[in-house]
Protein backbone atom coordinates (compact mmCIF):
# COMPACT_ATOMS: atom_id res chain seq x y z
CA UNK A 1 0.00 0.00 0.00
CA UNK A 2 1.58 3.24 -1.06
CA UNK A 3 -0.48 6.34 -0.67
CA UNK A 4 0.54 9.35 -2.67
CA UNK A 5 2.34 11.64 -0.26
CA UNK A 6 2.15 14.88 -2.21
CA UNK A 7 -1.55 15.69 -1.95
CA UNK A 8 -1.56 19.44 -2.29
CA UNK A 9 -4.30 21.87 -3.25
CA UNK A 10 -2.63 22.25 -6.62
CA UNK A 11 -2.55 18.52 -7.18
CA UNK A 12 -6.19 18.20 -6.25
CA UNK A 13 -7.09 21.00 -8.62
CA UNK A 14 -5.08 19.37 -11.37
CA UNK A 15 -6.80 16.03 -10.80
CA UNK A 16 -10.21 17.68 -10.79
CA UNK A 17 -9.45 19.08 -14.23
CA UNK A 18 -8.23 15.69 -15.41
CA UNK A 19 -11.38 14.14 -14.00
CA UNK A 20 -13.55 16.70 -15.76
CA UNK A 21 -11.98 16.02 -19.13
CA UNK A 22 -12.51 12.31 -18.52
CA UNK A 23 -16.08 13.20 -17.62
CA UNK A 24 -16.53 14.77 -21.03
CA UNK A 25 -15.70 11.55 -22.83
CA UNK A 26 -17.75 9.46 -20.44
CA UNK A 27 -20.71 11.77 -20.73
CA UNK A 28 -20.70 11.77 -24.51
CA UNK A 29 -20.56 7.98 -24.69
CA UNK A 30 -23.01 7.40 -21.82
CA UNK A 31 -25.55 9.92 -23.07
CA UNK A 32 -25.71 8.06 -26.38
CA UNK A 33 -26.20 4.78 -24.55
CA UNK A 34 -28.82 6.34 -22.30
CA UNK A 35 -30.71 7.73 -25.27
CA UNK A 36 -30.94 4.31 -26.92
CA UNK A 37 -31.78 2.62 -23.63
CA UNK A 38 -34.36 5.19 -22.63
CA UNK A 39 -36.24 5.48 -25.89
CA UNK A 40 -35.73 2.14 -27.61
CA UNK A 41 -35.22 0.00 -24.50
CA UNK A 42 -32.16 -1.60 -26.04
CA UNK A 43 -29.28 -2.23 -23.64
CA UNK A 44 -26.74 -1.77 -26.39
CA UNK A 45 -23.55 -3.58 -25.40
CA UNK A 46 -22.17 -2.85 -28.88
CA UNK A 47 -22.06 0.81 -27.95
CA UNK A 48 -18.51 0.27 -26.69
CA UNK A 49 -17.52 -1.29 -30.00
CA UNK A 50 -18.86 1.71 -31.87
CA UNK A 51 -16.75 3.89 -29.61
CA UNK A 52 -13.71 1.82 -30.50
CA UNK A 53 -14.55 1.95 -34.20
CA UNK A 54 -14.90 5.72 -33.86
CA UNK A 55 -11.38 5.92 -32.48
CA UNK A 56 -9.89 3.71 -35.18
CA UNK A 57 -11.76 5.53 -37.93
CA UNK A 58 -10.52 8.85 -36.60
CA UNK A 59 -6.98 7.50 -36.72
CA UNK A 60 -7.37 6.31 -40.31
CA UNK A 61 -8.99 9.50 -41.55
CA UNK A 62 -6.45 11.74 -39.85
CA UNK A 63 -3.63 9.67 -41.32
CA UNK A 64 -5.20 9.78 -44.78
CA UNK A 65 -5.18 13.56 -44.68
CA UNK A 66 -1.58 13.77 -43.59
CA UNK A 67 -2.10 13.94 -39.88
CA UNK A 68 -2.21 17.74 -39.71
CA UNK A 69 -4.73 20.05 -38.14
CA UNK A 70 -7.13 19.69 -41.04
CA UNK A 71 -6.90 15.91 -40.79
CA UNK A 72 -7.81 16.06 -37.12
CA UNK A 73 -10.89 18.18 -37.68
CA UNK A 74 -12.02 16.03 -40.57
CA UNK A 75 -11.53 12.92 -38.47
CA UNK A 76 -13.58 14.45 -35.72
CA UNK A 77 -16.45 14.99 -38.09
CA UNK A 78 -16.26 12.02 -40.43
CA UNK A 79 -15.50 9.25 -37.93
CA UNK A 80 -18.71 9.70 -35.92
CA UNK A 81 -20.66 9.95 -39.16
CA UNK A 82 -19.10 6.69 -40.29
CA UNK A 83 -20.16 5.08 -37.04
CA UNK A 84 -23.64 6.52 -37.47
CA UNK A 85 -23.80 4.97 -40.94
CA UNK A 86 -22.83 1.55 -39.58
CA UNK A 87 -25.49 1.81 -36.90
CA UNK A 88 -28.06 2.93 -39.44
CA UNK A 89 -27.46 -0.20 -41.49
CA UNK A 90 -27.61 -2.40 -38.39
CA UNK A 91 -30.82 -0.78 -37.20
CA UNK A 92 -32.69 -0.98 -40.48
CA UNK A 93 -31.36 -4.43 -41.29
CA UNK A 94 -31.69 -6.18 -37.94
CA UNK A 95 -32.63 -4.29 -34.81
CA UNK A 96 -35.91 -2.91 -36.08
CA UNK A 97 -37.26 -6.48 -36.25
CA UNK A 98 -36.42 -7.20 -32.64
CA UNK A 99 -37.93 -4.36 -30.63
CA UNK A 100 -40.56 -6.58 -29.10
CA UNK A 101 -38.09 -9.11 -27.72
CA UNK A 102 -37.30 -9.14 -24.04
CA UNK A 103 -34.34 -7.17 -22.73
CA UNK A 104 -32.12 -10.16 -22.18
CA UNK A 105 -32.43 -11.16 -25.84
CA UNK A 106 -31.75 -7.64 -27.00
CA UNK A 107 -28.73 -7.45 -24.75
CA UNK A 108 -27.39 -10.71 -26.13
CA UNK A 109 -28.10 -9.61 -29.66
CA UNK A 110 -26.09 -6.46 -29.20
CA UNK A 111 -23.39 -8.55 -27.56
CA UNK A 112 -23.17 -10.58 -30.76
CA UNK A 113 -22.36 -7.29 -32.50
CA UNK A 114 -19.66 -6.66 -29.93
CA UNK A 115 -18.09 -9.98 -30.83
CA UNK A 116 -18.36 -9.37 -34.56
CA UNK A 117 -17.16 -5.77 -34.44
CA UNK A 118 -14.27 -6.75 -32.17
CA UNK A 119 -12.93 -9.18 -34.73
CA UNK A 120 -13.70 -6.93 -37.69
CA UNK A 121 -11.62 -4.19 -36.10
CA UNK A 122 -8.82 -6.71 -35.68
CA UNK A 123 -9.27 -7.72 -39.31
CA UNK A 124 -9.14 -4.15 -40.64
CA UNK A 125 -6.65 -2.48 -38.34
CA UNK A 126 -4.66 -5.43 -37.01
CA UNK A 127 -3.89 -5.95 -33.37
CA UNK A 128 -1.23 -3.24 -33.02
CA UNK A 129 -1.56 -0.12 -30.96
CA UNK A 130 -2.41 3.02 -32.90
CA UNK A 131 -2.07 6.56 -31.81
CA UNK A 132 -3.37 9.82 -33.13
CA UNK A 133 -1.77 13.12 -32.25
CA UNK A 134 -3.76 16.24 -31.58
CA UNK A 135 -3.27 19.26 -33.84
CA UNK A 136 -0.13 21.20 -33.06
CA UNK A 137 -1.81 24.06 -31.25
CA UNK A 138 -3.43 21.59 -28.84
CA UNK A 139 -0.26 19.67 -28.14
CA UNK A 140 1.80 20.04 -25.01
CA UNK A 141 0.62 21.42 -21.74
CA UNK A 142 0.43 24.62 -19.86
CA UNK A 143 0.91 24.89 -16.17
CA UNK A 144 -1.61 25.43 -13.44
CA UNK A 145 -0.01 26.15 -10.06
CA UNK A 146 3.24 24.81 -11.55
CA UNK A 147 1.64 21.51 -12.46
CA UNK A 148 1.24 20.52 -16.11
CA UNK A 149 -2.19 20.24 -17.69
CA UNK A 150 -2.51 19.00 -21.30
CA UNK A 151 -3.91 21.56 -23.71
CA UNK A 152 -6.02 18.92 -25.41
CA UNK A 153 -7.87 18.29 -22.15
CA UNK A 154 -8.86 21.93 -22.11
CA UNK A 155 -10.34 21.38 -25.55
CA UNK A 156 -12.35 18.49 -24.13
CA UNK A 157 -13.59 20.72 -21.33
CA UNK A 158 -15.00 23.07 -23.97
CA UNK A 159 -16.51 20.29 -26.07
CA UNK A 160 -18.35 18.62 -23.16
CA UNK A 161 -20.75 21.47 -22.37
CA UNK A 162 -21.26 22.06 -26.10
CA UNK A 163 -22.43 18.48 -26.61
CA UNK A 164 -24.63 18.69 -23.53
CA UNK A 165 -26.19 21.87 -24.85
CA UNK A 166 -26.69 20.32 -28.27
CA UNK A 167 -28.40 17.31 -26.76
CA UNK A 168 -30.60 19.49 -24.62
CA UNK A 169 -31.60 21.44 -27.71
CA UNK A 170 -32.23 18.24 -29.65
CA UNK A 171 -34.43 16.61 -27.04
CA UNK A 172 -36.32 19.70 -25.89
CA UNK A 173 -36.58 22.00 -28.86
CA UNK A 174 -36.85 19.82 -31.93
CA UNK A 175 -39.84 17.84 -33.09
CA UNK A 176 -37.99 14.56 -33.22
CA UNK A 177 -36.70 15.09 -29.71
CA UNK A 178 -40.17 15.72 -28.37
CA UNK A 179 -41.56 12.66 -30.11
CA UNK A 180 -38.69 10.56 -28.83
CA UNK A 181 -39.30 11.71 -25.27
CA UNK A 182 -42.97 10.92 -25.59
CA UNK A 183 -42.16 7.51 -27.06
CA UNK A 184 -39.83 6.81 -24.16
CA UNK A 185 -42.78 7.16 -21.80
CA UNK A 186 -45.52 5.58 -23.88
CA UNK A 187 -44.63 3.92 -27.14
CA UNK A 188 -48.13 2.81 -28.12
CA UNK A 189 -49.61 6.22 -27.54
CA UNK A 190 -47.17 7.87 -29.90
CA UNK A 191 -47.86 5.21 -32.51
CA UNK A 192 -51.58 5.65 -32.02
CA UNK A 193 -51.54 9.34 -32.92
CA UNK A 194 -50.18 8.48 -36.33
CA UNK A 195 -46.48 9.11 -35.92
CA UNK A 196 -44.12 6.73 -37.65
CA UNK A 197 -42.46 5.44 -34.49
CA UNK A 198 -40.14 3.16 -36.41
CA UNK A 199 -38.53 6.10 -38.19
CA UNK A 200 -38.12 8.04 -34.95
CA UNK A 201 -36.53 5.01 -33.35
CA UNK A 202 -34.09 4.67 -36.21
CA UNK A 203 -33.13 8.33 -35.84
CA UNK A 204 -32.65 8.01 -32.09
CA UNK A 205 -30.57 4.89 -32.51
CA UNK A 206 -28.34 6.55 -35.07
CA UNK A 207 -27.90 9.68 -32.94
CA UNK A 208 -27.02 7.55 -29.92
CA UNK A 209 -24.43 5.62 -31.89
CA UNK A 210 -23.11 8.84 -33.41
CA UNK A 211 -22.30 9.94 -29.87
CA UNK A 212 -20.38 6.72 -29.27
CA UNK A 213 -18.35 7.42 -32.41
CA UNK A 214 -17.79 11.01 -31.34
CA UNK A 215 -16.57 9.87 -27.94
CA UNK A 216 -14.16 7.47 -29.62
CA UNK A 217 -12.85 10.12 -32.00
CA UNK A 218 -12.38 12.59 -29.16
CA UNK A 219 -10.59 10.15 -26.89
CA UNK A 220 -8.20 9.03 -29.66
CA UNK A 221 -5.50 11.69 -29.09
CA UNK A 222 -5.41 11.06 -25.34
CA UNK A 223 -4.63 7.35 -25.26
CA UNK A 224 -3.54 4.37 -27.27
CA UNK A 225 -6.15 3.12 -29.67
CA UNK A 226 -6.33 -0.59 -29.04
CA UNK A 227 -8.39 -3.73 -29.12
CA UNK A 228 -10.25 -4.06 -25.87
CA UNK A 229 -11.00 -0.39 -25.37
CA UNK A 230 -14.61 -1.34 -26.14
CA UNK A 231 -14.80 -3.75 -23.21
CA UNK A 232 -13.58 -1.19 -20.71
CA UNK A 233 -15.78 1.73 -21.74
CA UNK A 234 -19.07 -0.13 -22.05
CA UNK A 235 -19.23 -1.24 -18.44
CA UNK A 236 -18.39 2.28 -17.32
CA UNK A 237 -21.02 3.74 -19.61
CA UNK A 238 -23.66 1.33 -18.35
CA UNK A 239 -22.87 2.12 -14.75
CA UNK A 240 -23.08 5.84 -15.44
CA UNK A 241 -26.45 5.43 -17.08
CA UNK A 242 -27.69 3.31 -14.18
CA UNK A 243 -26.59 5.65 -11.41
CA UNK A 244 -27.88 8.65 -13.33
CA UNK A 245 -31.29 7.13 -14.03
CA UNK A 246 -32.01 5.15 -17.20
CA UNK A 247 -32.79 7.39 -20.14
CA UNK A 248 -32.15 10.64 -18.28
CA UNK A 249 -29.74 12.93 -20.10
CA UNK A 250 -28.83 14.99 -17.05
CA UNK A 251 -28.49 11.78 -15.13
CA UNK A 252 -25.85 10.69 -17.61
CA UNK A 253 -24.01 13.94 -16.97
CA UNK A 254 -24.26 13.54 -13.22
CA UNK A 255 -23.17 9.92 -13.43
CA UNK A 256 -20.24 10.80 -15.67
CA UNK A 257 -19.17 13.48 -13.21
CA UNK A 258 -19.26 11.04 -10.31
CA UNK A 259 -17.38 8.45 -12.31
CA UNK A 260 -14.79 10.81 -13.74
CA UNK A 261 -14.06 12.61 -10.50
CA UNK A 262 -13.87 9.55 -8.24
CA UNK A 263 -11.55 8.00 -10.80
CA UNK A 264 -9.19 10.97 -10.89
CA UNK A 265 -9.29 11.43 -7.13
CA UNK A 266 -8.53 7.73 -6.78
CA UNK A 267 -5.41 8.22 -8.87
CA UNK A 268 -4.31 10.86 -6.40
CA UNK A 269 -5.15 8.88 -3.28
CA UNK A 270 -4.23 5.32 -4.10
CA UNK A 271 -2.99 4.88 -7.66
CA UNK A 272 -2.84 1.11 -7.57
CA UNK A 273 -6.55 0.80 -6.81
CA UNK A 274 -7.77 3.95 -8.55
CA UNK A 275 -9.87 1.71 -10.80
CA UNK A 276 -11.85 0.57 -7.75
CA UNK A 277 -13.05 3.98 -6.59
CA UNK A 278 -15.72 4.64 -9.25
CA UNK A 279 -17.18 1.18 -8.70
CA UNK A 280 -17.46 1.83 -4.99
CA UNK A 281 -19.12 5.17 -5.72
CA UNK A 282 -21.61 3.38 -7.95
CA UNK A 283 -22.41 0.83 -5.28
CA UNK A 284 -22.92 3.52 -2.66
CA UNK A 285 -25.24 5.45 -4.96
CA UNK A 286 -27.26 2.36 -5.79
CA UNK A 287 -27.53 1.30 -2.16
CA UNK A 288 -29.38 4.50 -1.40
CA UNK A 289 -31.03 5.17 -4.75
CA UNK A 290 -31.52 1.78 -6.40
CA UNK A 291 -33.16 3.34 -9.45
CA UNK A 292 -30.55 6.02 -9.98
CA UNK A 293 -30.16 9.60 -8.87
CA UNK A 294 -32.52 11.28 -11.31
CA UNK A 295 -35.89 10.26 -12.68
CA UNK A 296 -35.71 7.39 -15.11
CA UNK A 297 -37.90 7.06 -18.17
CA UNK A 298 -38.48 3.39 -17.38
Amino acid sequence: MEFASNITIAAIFQQVLVGLSRTTILFIVASGLSLVLGVLRIPNVAHGSLYMIGAFLAYTIATLFGGGTAGFWLALIIAPLGVALISFIAERGLFCHLYEREHLMLLLFTFSFTLVFGDLVKLVWGSDYRSLSAPVFMQGSFSIFDLPFPRYNLFLLVIGPLVALGLWFLTNKTKIGKIARAAAVDREMVGAVGINVSRVFAAVFVIGCFLAGLGGALVAPTQNITQGMDHAIIIEAFLIVIIGGLGNMWGALLGALIFGLTDSMGILLWPQFAIVFPYIAVIIVLLFRPKGLLKSTW
Binding site: L94, L98, R101, M105, L108, F109, F111, S112, F113, T114, L115, V116, G118, D119, L120, K122, L123
Partner: peptide, 16 residues
Amino acid sequence: EYWTLILGIVLMLLIL
Protein backbone atom coordinates in the same frame (compact mmCIF):
# COMPACT_ATOMS: atom_id res chain seq x y z
CA GLU B 1 -7.88 -16.41 -35.19
CA TYR B 2 -11.27 -14.83 -35.75
CA TRP B 3 -13.20 -17.13 -33.47
CA THR B 4 -15.26 -14.42 -31.80
CA LEU B 5 -16.49 -13.26 -35.20
CA ILE B 6 -17.93 -16.72 -35.76
CA LEU B 7 -19.33 -16.87 -32.24
CA GLY B 8 -21.00 -13.52 -32.83
CA ILE B 9 -22.62 -14.71 -36.03
CA VAL B 10 -23.76 -17.95 -34.40
CA LEU B 11 -25.33 -15.94 -31.60
CA MET B 12 -27.08 -13.63 -34.05
CA LEU B 13 -28.57 -16.53 -35.99
CA LEU B 14 -29.55 -18.23 -32.76
CA ILE B 15 -31.50 -15.23 -31.49
CA LEU B 16 -33.14 -14.68 -34.85
